[in-house]
Amino acid sequence: KDFLEVLISLRNPNRDSCEDVSAWSHWGLVQVPLSVRDIPQLRKAYSELSLNSGQLGIDDVANIHPDLFENSYVQIGTKVVMEQDSAAAQQYSRRGCPTGLRADLWALILNSTNQPQDKTHYEQLKAGVIQHDLLVDNLIYKDVKLTASNDDYYFVFEDFLYQVLLCFSRDTAVLEHFKYNSATPPKSFILVGEEEHVVVYPPNGVIPFHGFSMYVAPLCFLYNEPSTLYNIFREMYIRYFFRLHSISSSTSGIVSLCLQFERLLQTHLPQLFYHLRQIGAQPLRIAFKWMVRAFSGYLSTDQLLLLWDRILGYDSLEVVAVLAAAVFAFRAENLMEVTSLASAEAVLADLSTLKVMPLIQIFLFATAV
Rank of each mutant, 00 (worst) to 15 (best):
P185V: 10
N71Y: 11
I39W: 07
G313Q: 04
F209V: 07
P218Y: 12
T339L: 02
D118W: 05
L10H: 01
L259S: 11
A62D: 09
A173T: 06
E337R: 09
G211N: 06
H121K: 07
L305R: 01
T267W: 07
N334P: 00
N12T: 11
L348W: 11
F233T: 04
Y240D: 02
D152W: 06
Y298E: 13
I8W: 00
Y314A: 02
S17W: 14
F241A: 02
T99F: 11
W290P: 01
F178A: 01
L219N: 02
M357C: 03
L219H: 04
E225G: 00
L68W: 10
V80C: 05
L229W: 02
S50E: 12
L219S: 05
K142C: 13
F157T: 12
L165Y: 11
E262N: 03
F241G: 00
I232A: 02
A324N: 07
K119A: 13
L42F: 13
Q31M: 09
T113I: 00
G297R: 00
L341K: 09
D350A: 14
S9Y: 00
T251M: 08
I76E: 06
F365E: 04
I39F: 08
P40S: 10
L29N: 03
N231E: 12
P203Y: 04
S149Y: 03
V21W: 06
G57T: 05
V164Y: 11
C220I: 08
A173Q: 10
Q278K: 02
I130K: 03
A366M: 11
L354K: 02
T99W: 09
